[in-house]
Design a protein around this nucleic acid. Structure first.
Length: 479
RNA sequence: GGCGACGUAGCCAAGUGGUAAGGCAGAGGUCUGCAAAACCUUCAUCGUCGGUUCGAUUCCGACCGUCGCCUCCA
C-alpha cells in the first residue's frame, strides 16, 4: 500500500508520489514570532511532525522539510516600536520560545527555518516578476496583487468572487487600503523614512504576509513541490494568495498536495489568542502534565482533520494511555526469557506481524493515527495475554522492543518519557524503599503497607513483582 | 450571505452496505498477604426525519445542533 493524503484542493485522497522521484519536498507554515505560540498552534506542528516522521520512514529520509518563521508583520513592528527594539531584538525571544517548546514536545526539526527578514531580496524579485506579468500594481508606493489577472483565484478555498463579501468578517478597515479591488491583497507595504522597513528597488517598505511563503518556498524547494501544510485557517486567504502569487509568476503548478489540520478547541470554541482561551506548552507542563501526555493528546486523540476538544480530563486520559505504553515497555525490558522458542513465541510473533501491518496501513491511509493506536493497543493486550502464561526467547523479546521503537519512531512519546528520567529517590525515600523490601522479606506486611503509603505521598508507586519490589513515579496530575 | 468541517457509549474517539476498534472512567472476577500491573467478563444500535437497498451507523435528500474561514489567525 502507498501513502495517501487528503488534498484540500481536490478534496480527495491523493497518492504521495514525489515530483522529483524518491525525494519529498515539504513546506509547512510556521509561527509568526510575535508572542509565545499556544498548544493549538502546536496541534498543527505536531500533525506536521507525525507526517514528517512517516514520510522519513516511507521515503528513506529523503525528505526536505522547510518551516518558515514569520518575523515581520504589523504586530511585531508595533511591539518593537513600543519596546524600543529592533525587529531582531523583538523576535529573538519568541523564536527561542518556539524552539524550546518544539524541543519539549520532541518535534523533529525541519531542515530549514527561513526567516522572512532574510528573504527580502527574493520577495522583491517576485513582486517585480508579478508586476511584469501584469499581476501586480503599485498604489501609493505599496504593491498589490491584481486578482482579476489570475482567473483561477479561489480554486483552493472554493471562494468565488461573489462570495467574498468585503468586510463580512468585520475585520477590514477599508480606510487602510488603496486597492483597485477589495479582494486584492498587499504584496509590499510602503512606509515612511522613520518607520521600520527596507530600502529596496521597489521603494521603502516591508513585505505583506503572503509573499514570504511564496518566495521562501520557491527559493528552498523550487517552483513546484510536493506537500504544503498548515492549519485550516490558512486555507483562505493565506494559501489561496500564495497560489495566486506563485502561479501567476511562474505559470507552473505551485504545490501537489495541500494538507490542513483542524483546530484545537476549548468548550467548543477554537483555541485562539484573541479569545483568550489558550494555554502554552510551558503552562501545561508547569501545571504538572508530562510532555509525553501532551504530545500524545495532540498527536493521537483524533484524526488530524477533525476538531479536537481540549480539556484537563483529556490530558489525564492521555497520560493514562501513555502510562499503559510505558508499563508495557517496562514489562518487555524486564522479561525473563527462555532458551528455546516455543508456542508463546509463535503467538507473540503473529501479534507483532499483525500490529506492524495494521499500523502501517492506518498511517498510509491519510495518517490515521487513532486507528493505528487502536491496533497497537489491541495487539498489546494480545501479547500481554500470552506473556501472562508463557515465557519467550530473547530474540522474541528483541523483536517486541524493535516494534515498540518503530511505533514510537512515529508517535514520539516513549522517547519523551525516556528523555526525562524519573527523578531518583532521595535519601529518605531510598531508606523507605529498603526498609519496605526488608519488611516484606520478613513478611511484616503492616510495616510494608505503611511504607507504601508513605512513598505514595511522595509520588512513588511501589509494585511487588516476582522479581521483587519495583517503583515508579506517578504524574502528580492524574485527575 | 458564500465556502467548509463536525454530531458514534459517562468522557475522548476509529470505522464499515450486513447489526460498532481502541483509550479513559465504572461494575464484577482471576492473580496477589493486600495492592499495583496484567488478564477475563460487562457497559452504545451510531443527531432527527425521509429516500435508495433484501439490509444503512455507513449512500442520497431535508432538517436540527455545534464550530471554522470570508484579507493579523495553526
Amino acid at each position: 500500500m502507498t501513502l495517501q493524503l487528503h488534498d484540500t484542493m481536490s478534496r480527495e485522497l491523493v497518492a504521495v508520489e514525489p515530483i522529483d522521484p524518491g525525494h519529498i519536498r515539504m513546506y509547512t507554515c510556521g509561527p509568526t514570532v510575535w508572542n509565545r505560540v499556544h498548544i493549538g498552534n502546536f496541534r498543527t506542528f505536531i500533525f506536521e511532525d507525525v507526517l514528517r516522521r512517516w514520510l522519513d520512514r516511507r521515503f528513506a529520509n529523503n525528505v526536505t522539510h522547510v518551516m518558515n518563521l514569520t518575523d515581520v508583520d504589523d504586530r511585531i513592528i508595533k511591539n518593537a516600536v513600543a519596546h524600543g527594539h529592533s525587529l531582531d531584538e523583538e523576535t529573538a525571544q519568541w523564536i527561542a520560545a518556539f524552539e524550546e517548546d518544539r524541543d519539549t514536545l520532541g518535534i523533529r526539526p525541519a531542515h530549514h527555518y527561513p526567516r522572512a527578514t532574510e528573504y527580502i531580496e527574493q520577495m522583491v524579485d517576485l513582486i517585480e516578476r508579478l508586476e511584469h506579468a501584469g499581476a501586480a500594481y503599485r498604489a501609493d508606493g505599496s504593491y498589490y496583487f491584481h486578482i482579476a489577472a489570475f482567473p483561477a483565484y479561489g480554486k483552493l478555498s472554493g471562494a468565488s468572487a461573489e462570495g467574498l463579501v468585503a468586510g463580512a468578517s468585520g475585520r477590514i478597515d477599508a480606510d487602510d487600503y488603496t486597492k483597485e479591488d477589495v479582494r486584492d491583497f498587499a504584496l509590499w507595504k510602503a512606509v515612511g523614512p522613520d518607520e521600520i522597513g527596507w530600502d529596496t528597488r521597489i521603494g521603502r517598505g516591508h513585505p505583506g504576509w503572503h509573499i514570504e511563503c511564496s518566495a521562501m518556498s520557491m527559493a528552498l524547494l523550487g517552483e513546484s513541490f510536493d506537500i504544503h501544510c498548515g492549519g485550516v485557517d490558512n486555507i483562505f486567504p493565506h494559501h489561496e494568495n500564495e497560489i495566486a502569487q506563485s502561479e501567476a509568476a511562474t505559470g507552473k503548478r505551485f504545490v501537489r498536495i495541500w494538507c490542513h489540520s483542524q483546530h484545537l478547541r476549548v468548550s467548543g470554541e477554537k483555541m485562539a489568542k484573541r479569545v483568550g482561551n489558550f494555554a502554552t506548552v510551558r503552562e501545561v507542563l508547569d501545571e504538572g502534565a508530562s510532555a509525553a501526555s501532551l504530545r500524545y493528546l495532540l498527536a493521537a486523540r483524533t484524526h488530524y482533520r477533525k476538531p479536537l476538544e481540549y480539556s484537563d480530563e483529556l490530558l489525564s486520559d492521555s497520560n493514562a494511555a501513555v502510562q499503559r505504553l510505558v508499563d508495557f515497555q517496562t514489562r518487555i525490558a524486564g522479561l525473563p526469557t527462555v532458551e528455546e522458542a516455543g508456542n508463546a513465541d509463535d503467538a507473540v510473533l503473529a501479534s507483532v506481524r499483525g500490529m506492524r501491518i495494521g499500523f502501517e496501513e492506518a498511517m498510509d491511509d491519510d495518517l490515521n493515527v487513532p486507528e493505528a493506536m487502536g491496533i497497537v493497543f489491541s495487539g498489546l493486550r494480545d501479547v500481554n495475554r500470552v506473556l501472562d502464561t508463557g515465557a519467550v526467547s530473547a530474540e522474541t523479546q528483541r523483536t517486541l522492543q524493535h516494534l515498540l521503537n518503530e511505533i514510537d519512531g512515529v508517535l514520539g512519546v516513549l522517547a519523551l518519557v525516556a528523555r526525562d528520567p524519573q527523578a531518583a529517590p532521595d535519601a529518605e525515600e531510598q531508606r523507605w524503599l529498603d526498609q519496605r523490601a526488608a519488611a516484606r522479606a520478613a513478611r511484616d506486611f503492616a510495616q510494608s503497607d505503611h511504607l507504601r503509603i508513605q512513598l505514595a505521598s511522595r509520588g512513588i508507586e511501589v509494585e511487588d513483582t516476582p522479581q521483587g519490589q519495583r517503583w515508579k513515579r506517578i504524574s502528580p496530575r492524574r485527575g
